[in-house]
Design a protein around this nucleic acid. Structure first.
Lengths: 232, 232
DNA sequence: GTTTGTGAACGCATTCACAGCT
DNA sequence: AGCTGTGAATGCGTTCACAAAC
């Protein structure tokens, strides 16, 4: 009777083992990168990849890629590397994206619509299931195959359909209030396009998705570096 | 003759000192969060804030906030906390956002337009200075006060105007090729809305801004946690 | 009494190096 | 020969705890 890892026995059929620890945050942050690269490689017809190659593609060293993957089981073959489609399945399972997740989108402005109509969520694990806006004049409008409803109806919908994931894509005004209501209704994951930094209880996860903040962080390295930001 | 920190002598007028080390990455990642909160507090009329309070707002402990800020100088007053507007100025300077940065936007689809028309960049350090699209039928269209040009013209523009910052907001197809051309023309910072994971030389910074990847990462904590993703 | 600035302690992620498998 | 899996070592960020300042 051997120990079994939660994931890999299903993804592969040969014996994976080891660590079932909750998986460190930094590793989890890299999994989507791996997955994205691998899906691309798969689409390009590649079948195997080495840890060094994979690492290079996501900007880390090979040893780290190996170490990361080994947290979830032994997916590689010594001398050959990793079989890509196995790895894709395994990562999808680890991430929990081998099922569908309903998502509510709050904000039907330019950005909200761009998201709703984008190709991003096609073929992803995430299905936009409702769209809301606080402006009553937007109510009833069609965006793709969704109909805009009032933001005040969002908590009810979330509760009724047991939705766990929300995207906030409206102008920042009362983002915290909206978030609080959604969390109260059962939302556990928030993708926040608002410039407001949200305070949430520990069981809720937020990702700040503000382009200006992202640019600020990167510009910092430039500004204090070699390039003197003298003029312009 | 005392040592002087690069930044703080200008931001404040009393003696800041200590570390002029290049500032660890994790700290820099938090600076935009601090800044955002502080600007909000400032707008709300508050003048002072303690490290504990500031920490709570960005989801970290007070000691860490203190430690972070002290890397750039001594901005606080013991017993009182930090004077918000001083801190805002100092952070803006550290981040390098007390000047204007020209930005080129590649992609004039739903998303590109949403970005161009959004309020995000108003009053920020970033000015969208040109917008490009690979579809010739888009050429000449007005988006806000910008006129869409061909993506193939982007490298020339970047070189000519010495632009360092680019935003990629088109459907993923040949994101890497576009990125390579822009980098060749002098781009050092890329905000990548594409689902393609970009490979760039070490002097270039990329932030992946793909909502699906962000959701995947967060869902992971849910899926393997207490909530069994059994049904639906 | 309150709150900062900071050295010391701790814990954790990454890298290294190599044994082991193909 | 090539590449994975992994323990050991390293380096680094965070937390702790307290002296100094207001």
């Amino acid at each position: 009777m051997r120990e079994l890892s939660i994931v890999a026995d299903i993804a592969l059929n040969h014996a994976p083992r080891r660590r079932r620890a909750p998986a460190p945050e930094p590793i989890i942050q890299r999994l989507p990168l791996y997955l994205s690269c691998l899906q691309e490689l798969l689409a390009a017809g590649k079948t195997h990849i080495s840890s060094d190659d994979l690492g290079a593609r996501v900007g880390i060293c090979g040893a780290l890629a190996r170490s990361d993957l080994s947290h979830f089981g032994a997916f590689g073959v010594r001398g050959l590397g990793y079989e890509i489609d196995c790895l894709v399945s395994a990562l999808e399972q680890v991430l929990g994206v081998n099922r569908k997740w309903d998502v509510v989108l709050v904000g039907a402005g330019e950005l909200g619509c761009a998201l709703a109509l984008s190709a991003w969520f096609q073929d992803s694990a995430f299905r936009l299931s409702a769209i809301f806006d606080c402006d009553p004049r937007q109510t009833g409008r069609q965006v793709g195959d969704l109909t805009v409803a009032l933001t005040s109806d969002a908590p009810g919908w979330v509760r009724e359909h047991d939705v766990k994931v929300a995207i906030l894509a409206f102008c920042s005004c009362d983002a915290q209030a909206v978030a609080d209501l959604l969390i109260g209704a059962g939302i556990r994951i928030i993708l926040n396009y608002t410039s407001r930094v949200l305070q949430v209880p520990p069981e809720v996860r937020v990702t700040q998705f503000n382009p200006v903040a992202a640019l600020q962080e990167m510009v910092c390295h430039l500004g204090n570096g070699s390039t003197q930001p003298s003029a312009r």
